[in-house]
Computed example of a mutant assay.
Amino acid sequence: MAYDDPATFATKAKAFLADGLAQGLQVRYVSAGSSDEIADLREWLLGELAPDRADAVHIESVRGTYGVGHVVSGVKQVAAYAAATSAALAAGFAGLRVAADATPLVVTPAQLDAFARYEHQIDRYMIGHPFSAMCGYDRAVLGADAVAELACMHPVSNARTMFRWHAAESGVALAGEIDRSVQTLFRKALRRTDLAQGEPVDIDVAGLDFVDHHAIVELDELGRQHQARIVLRNPGYLVARIVQLMNLDFVGVGESA
């Protein structure tokens, strides 16, 4: 979620976590706010929504959890949330829900690159596990371009992006429109996706409304880097025709798997 006022994110996070508590989930809020703000939020969540289970709500600070200047390890962070989800289930909750103001974790180019990679990895984990999360990004601090690099890695976001490249049950999904104006952004998104070397990749493109040949070349290069056959599933006529007309080594089209 992109926001322009921290209070806006706090309000959305409160509603998101309250909904999780109503579903029987354990909830966690990672805040960039002051210790007083964190204490007030925990008191409200417990007092109003979970007065009988103190372990239903965990509130942490970004600074206290990660420190200053931390570059997130996607593998370690996914493992940490997987362990926390398992612990929540063992404690009798239906799963785990997290709201985090991630702004302090993406202020440098290295942080942004690492966190965008992590976003794809955690989305992949969420598909098959009772874990959900909402991350907040302050546009005033990060700028619209940085927010777009993160937003395009999710199926849903309030930040407008021309395309979405995200984890899906089929493997990966690509939706929206891709032309030369977003080629650099698209290339970054592809490079931030971990693919198994040599294993075929299915990409659901049912929601892809427009793509030019430059983007198809980028997909072919992705396949080349991983020595992996890339199959575009459920393509529209335009996508299928472009692929058929190009001499590609690693990209092909196919029906629903």
Rank of each mutant, 00 (worst) to 15 (best):
D123F: 11
A7N: 11
E218L: 09
S157H: 08
L112N: 04
V75K: 13
I122D: 05
R192C: 11
T103D: 07
D179A: 07
P6S: 01
A206C: 06
E48D: 13
C152R: 10
Q77A: 02
D249Y: 05
S86L: 08
F186C: 11
D249T: 09
V147C: 14
D202F: 14
A148G: 03
P6Y: 03
H154F: 13
A102M: 12
S73V: 07
G171Y: 09
L219R: 01
G143T: 13
R63L: 03
A151K: 07
A140V: 15
H154W: 12
T161A: 07
G95H: 08
L232C: 05
V30S: 09
H226I: 03
A22L: 05
I122F: 10
A91F: 09
S170K: 05
R192I: 09
V71C: 01
A88P: 02
H166G: 04
H154N: 13
V30I: 15
V141G: 01
E60W: 09
Q244L: 03
V62I: 12
D40F: 14
H58S: 12
H120T: 07
Q183G: 09
A79V: 00
M153W: 01
E218I: 00
E199V: 10
F16I: 06
A91Q: 13
D101I: 01
A102C: 12
A10Y: 15
S170A: 11
D220G: 04
A2D: 08
R180D: 14
H129G: 06
R224K: 13
P6A: 06
N158E: 05
G33H: 05
P235T: 05
N247W: 12
L17Y: 14
G33V: 03
F9R: 00
D209P: 00
V78S: 00
T108V: 08
V205D: 06
A116V: 15
D212G: 03
S256E: 14
L150V: 07
E199P: 01
E149Q: 14
S61Y: 07
H154C: 10
A84L: 09
A50V: 01
V62W: 00
A173G: 04
A91W: 08
A82Q: 10
L248R: 06
I122K: 04
H120C: 03
V239H: 04
Y137K: 03
H226L: 04
Q183K: 05
A90Y: 01
I38S: 09
A90Q: 09
V211Y: 04
F115Q: 03
L174N: 10
D101K: 00
V68K: 08
A196D: 14
L105Y: 08
Y66L: 00
P51Q: 03
L185W: 02
G47I: 12
Q227R: 13
H58A: 15
V217A: 14
A228G: 05
R42E: 14
L46R: 12
A82K: 06
A94E: 12
G176P: 12
L238I: 05
S35P: 11
F186G: 08
D212Y: 00
W165Y: 14
G143W: 15
G223V: 10
A100S: 11
A94Y: 01
P51V: 09
A240F: 07
R97A: 11
P51H: 05
V239G: 02
D52M: 12
L222G: 00
A7E: 13
P104G: 00
A196N: 06
R160E: 15
A228I: 05
